[in-house]
Structures are given as structure tokens and as C-alpha cells.
Design a protein around this nucleic acid. Structure first.
Lengths: 333, 333
DNA sequence: CCATCTTGTGGGAACGATCCCACGCAGGGA
DNA sequence: TCCCTGCGTGGGATCGTTCCCACAAGATGG
């Protein structure tokens, strides 16, 4: 391995001077700068990141924790982060798939141990107390996506689930729907609760009694949409529209409705949430609420990069908008 | 920051002894081992990864390069790798989105600089000569997915595109189709060529002249499937089936066929490749060839972990099978 | 002409681990 | 008694940087 010492020997200068050239700070004469530059390329010198990190406590690594990289939703987000990282000349350490909160905590600890310069966290549940302390004590800047009950984030990015759900609900109402089913995700999730509030708000604004809508809770899985729709149908419930908690649930709803011979969207309208990868491929193409996942991923890194550059951003909280995407699964009655 | 020195002071022993306890090697008396263990937890000591890496040249980081994390196909693979990494107690540095080969090379260099213990590469194009040399000189073990023209991989994982395409083609032939369109991806990609060979083989075995099938090349994008199908239709081509190079293309094909008022699969059968996320949501549900992406991601890490544990695996080449997934988009004529 | 500042350079102490080497002691075999 | 081996421990060099400090020479100003 070729070290800074080799370069300095070759260039006939001291290590210090070479270091100054590499870091591009301090005084170096133009002549030596050139000689050293040449020595570096000739020897193919590449700085040792470990040594650097040890000494300066900076790694240019950003640690990312998401719920599940494999799901298209998070994959999009990670894709956005990745692009931003490249632009900011940072590497991206990634950790995901933590159903278990202990695993999740360990993953975050691990990222801290790795001396990441900063962390981007997208967690569905609030951070545990002990972990929160560890993060705070580490002094590593954090950008939180989704929510920040523990006030860990130097910056917080929120997705406007409330307005999205409200818009979706209004759209159903405007299309004349009054008997609506909402198949919701787990109440424990922040996002679920925000959407629920949006729905309530839309009902209130339209002067519709809250009990006009039937809400069922389950997981954000296609299976839940499918089985719940079947059981609702079989128990004789009447409804003209289903507001699915997300597009996966919506896919299950559509499957179930079709299986019972219903015609979409004539007999039942369906609306989703996320604008996931498959939304436009469903039949009828799903009307849904788009979450700007890619942009969120990108934004998180950009904010972190700014913080690392010394900009304070104290208590920055950005709410990114959602957008109603009208396709073919909702019709007026 | 609490260091090994602090621990040694607290426990009244030398740094060396503490180090031995941490690494769990060498001789340490049971008594001291216990005292040191207690000191570690009391002080909340966590080893400094940088210092460790600098000295021992081992980081427990695995570098991954894929074409695009955001696409569901690669996301699945990364998800599999992630799970395996967790199990193997390794961290995962990830790099992707390199349309440009220079960027790709830089990304790999960067991973080498970071002293990754090993690399997993899934690249669509062969590695450039200069980069190949750098990788070889670095001595870092590599697991290649897809292909390994430069013989860089200690282990290679191939996906059986050939058999998959052959099976798909046979399925169309068995269903009586003789006028088939194949919308292929770029010839430059390994996978594309392997699929093409599979198609040829199926034709040959069925004693069908190779010119019975019309092949058009484009990108693995829905747009290509859509526009090409329209232009084929408009120029009066007659065909009973379309074999799409992948599921994205298939989605475009289906869209175009429907737009022209054709009934699927009655009028035209469609078959895809990948069994991507949206395949089952298409209407009709897409018959396609499944690639075991998640398993491949997992396998790559497992092989690498074995290599890092000192198992040679010299010239291991594993071909993972593909599987025809029959749904509703193909019918007999 | 001396003090001060700017520019340019090198020496060498950190950073926090690992791991080689030396050494001490006990027990057993020749 | 002497030597060897196994166990247990500590000292300290080392990994490749960064960065503080010392110092030198020339420019500038009063």
C-alpha cells in the first residue's frame, strides 16, 4: 500500500506538506504543489480512510435506517438518498428490515459505532428512550423522516399524510359517495393516525356524520384488503366506495371485489394511498395519493449535508406535500 | 469517548489484556475476564471501528454495487443481501444508479478505499480493464452476480436466463402460438443475450424456423413495450403472442393492446420476464418467468462470508434456476 | 532598524486499537 | 536440578493520517 510517506519521499518534501496539498488548506508553494500532485498520480496514492477517520473523526459516511429496503416504497426513498449522497460525495451505509425494535436499536448503535457523520432515520415507531440518549450523547446529527417524538432530529421531514387523506376523502365525497369503507393500517403508526385525522376533517367539512364511514384496522398488506373486503361483502355491508390505507391494501380490495363479480369502478370505487409502483398497473388504474418518496430521500441527505457543512438549521421542519393522482378507479354516482 | 485504556485502568489491567478479552483470543484468567467485562459495561465502552480497521485492516463492511436500488428488481436483491448481512454481522455499504461507466468505476474504487472486506457486484456491463486491475490488486474478494468476463469473482452467481426464456418460449409454442413477437432488451446486456439464446433453442427443439419469430430490440422500459406494440399493430403485423423482454415491457405491451381494443388473452397472449412486483397486478395477471432476486442477494453475501471465513471456494459458479409462473395472460389457440 | 505579519516548510505527537515479544510462574519429565 | 511447556500478563511498536507547533525568510510598517 502506498502511503503519504511514500509520496512525500518521492516528492522530496515532508508528510505535512503532502497532507496540506491533499486537504487543500494551509500554505504550499505552487511549485511543490505541482510536484506533489505528480507524485500522487505516479504512485497511484489513495488516502487511507481508516487512518483519516481515526485522526479526524470524520468518515464521509451517512448511515440510513429504513423499515424495509426491499419494498418499493422505501426502495424509492433509498434511491433518492443514494443519488443525493453521490452528489454530496458521501458513502451510504444502509440498514433495514427491523421488525424487532431491539434489532433496530442495535442497527442504529452500529451506525454510531461506525462513526457515521450523520444519520437519516425513517422509523415507523418512536425511538426507544435508551437509544434516544445514546444518539443524543453521540452528538451525531440526525435527520428524521416521518416524525420525531424524541426531538432527536436537527431537521425533520414530514409527509403530509393528513392533507393527502383529506383530499382523497373529499374526492370520494365530491363524487357523491356517502357509504364509504376505510381499511386502515395499524393505529400504532404515526402515518395511519394522520390519515385518519384527514378523513375525519373531510367528513366534518362536508357536514357528514362521522359514522357514515366504516373503519377497519389491519396491516398494510394486500391480504388484509382482500380478506376484509370479502368478509364485509359477505356480511351484507352496503358501500359504494373503499378508501384503502395504502395501495397494497387497495390491490387486495380490487381482487376481492372482482372475485365477487362486481364491476369496477361502476359498482364500487376504490382509492388508495402511496402511488406505489403497481398502482397504475392495477385494473382499473388506481386513483391514489402520491407520496414523494424519492424526493424525501433526496431531501433528507441534502439537509444532512447542509448541517455537516456547518449550517445550523435548528428545528427545521419541512412538510412535503402529497398529491391526489386521479386515474380510473373512482367514478361519480 | 471511552477507550480501551479507560477500561484497562478501571479494571486494573493492561490494554493488552482488555484487547484479548474483546477479541476473545489468547490467555486470560477467568477472574480478570470477569472484572474486565464488568468494567466494559459500566463504562459503556464500545470499540472504535476506525482504530480497529486501521490496525487490523478489517472493517466488517461489505460493499455492494447494483445498477439501481430504486427499481423493485434490485431492491429485492438488496433486501436479501441486507438480511444476510445482518445475520453475518456485517454492515452494508451500498452504491448504485450508475448509468455512466465512469461513475460506476469511481463507486467501486470508493468501496475499495473504504477497505470493505468484500464486494458484491451486479453490473450489467463487463468491468473495464483498468478497474479490473485495481480490483485484482486490491486483493479484496469479490462475488459477481450475473457474469464475470474478467474473472474477478472468487465466486460467481448466475441466473438461468437461458432456461427461463426457453421455458417461456416453449410454453407459448405448446399453447399453439406460431406467430410470436419478441420485444427484447439491449443486446449489450448479458442477460438479454442469454434470453435470446433460450428462445432460439426452444424454436429449434420444436422444429420451428427461427424467422417465425419477430425480434425487436429496445430498452427494458414500459415505454418501449407500449410504443413498439402500437407501431407493430399499426403496420399491420399479425401475431398471436408477445414475449416481452421483461415485465416492464410487458406492462407497456398490455397497455397498447388494450388501447387498440384487443381482448387479452383471447386475441393476444403476453408473457413477461422477472416476475416483478407488478406482474400479478396486471390485468390479465401476467404469466412470466420468475428470477429469484431475493435469494440471489442473500446467496451472494453468504458466499462472501464463507470466503472471508477462509473457505476457498475457488472458481465456484452457482447457477440459480428461474421458474415459469403461469397466470392468466397466455391462452391456447 | 526592529517588530510584526505573511508565506512556506518540517517535525512529531496524537488518534485507539492490535498484536508481537518478553517475561514470570507453575508443574512435569528427564 | 534443569529444561520445557502451558498459562497469564504487560510493554510498546505500529497502522496512516491530521494538525499543532516551531521556525525561517521575506515583506511591510512605524
Amino acid at each position: 500500500m502506498v502511503t503519504i510517506k511514500d509520496v512525500s519521499k518521492r516528492a522530496g518534501v515532508s508528510k505535512s506538506t503532502v497532507s496540506r496539498v491533499i486537504a487543500n488548506n494551509g500554505y504550499v508553494s505552487e511549485r511543490k504543489r505541482e510536484i506533489i500532485g505528480r507524485a500522487i498520480t505516479e504512485l497511484g496514492y489513495r488516502p487511507n480512510t481508516m487512518a483519516r477517520g481515526l485522526r479526524s473523526n470524520r468518515t464521509n459516511i451517512i448511515g440510513n435506517v429504513v423499515v424495509d429496503v426491499a419494498s418499493p416504497f422505501y426502495a424509492q426513498m433509498v434511491g433518492g438518498s443514494q443519488a443525493a449522497c453521490r452528489q454530496a460525495q458521501k458513502s451510504m451505509l444502509i440498514s433495514s428490515g427491523y421488525a424487532d425494535q431491539n434489532d433496530e436499536s442495535n442497527a442504529i448503535m452500529e451506525l454510531i459505532d461506525r462513526a457515521c457523520d450523520g444519520l437519516v432515520l425513517y422509523l415507523e415507531n418512536p425511538v426507544r428512550d435508551d437509544l434516544a440518549d445514546i444518539i443524543r450523547n453521540s452528538g451525531i446529527p440526525v435527520v428524521m423522516i416521518g416524525g420525531d417524538e424524541r426531538k432527536l432530529g436537527r431537521a425533520v421531514i414530514k409527509i403530509d399524510n393528513y392533507s393527502g387523506a383529506k383530499a382523497a376523502m373529499q374526492f370520494l365525497i365530491d363524487n357523491g359517495h356517502r357509504h364509504i369503507i376505510h381499511l386502515s393500517g395499524p393505529l400504532a403508526y404515526r402515518d395511519t393516525r394522520a390519515r385518519l385525522l384527514g378523513i375525519k376533517a373531510a367528513l366534518a367539512e362536508a357536514n357528514i356524520a362521522a359514522d357514515k364511514i366504516l373503519i377497519r384496522h389491519g396491516e398494510y398488506f394486500e391480504k388484509f384488503g382482500y380478506s376484509e373486503t370479502l368478509s364485509l361483502l359477505d356480511s351484507g355491508h352496503k358501500f359504494t366506495a373503499v378508501f384503502a390505507g395504502d395501495d397494497d391494501i387497495a390491490a387486495g380490495v380490487i381482487l376481492a371485489l372482482k372475485e365477487r363479480g362486481l364491476h369496477l369502478p361502476k359498482d364500487v370505487s376504490v382509492i388508495g394511498f402511496d402511488d406505489n409502483f403497481h398502482a397504475r398497473h392495477l385494473s382499473p388504474a388506481l386513483t391514489t395519493v402520491r407520496q414523494p418518496t424519492r424526493e424525501v430521500g433526496r431531501l433528507a441527505i441534502e439537509l444532512l449535508a447542509q448541517i455537516l457543512d456547518g449550517n445550523d438549521l435548528e428545528n427545521t421542519e419541512i412538510t412535503v406535500p402529497t398529491e391526489l393522482i386521479v386515474r380510473e378507479s373512482v367514478t361519480a354516482i
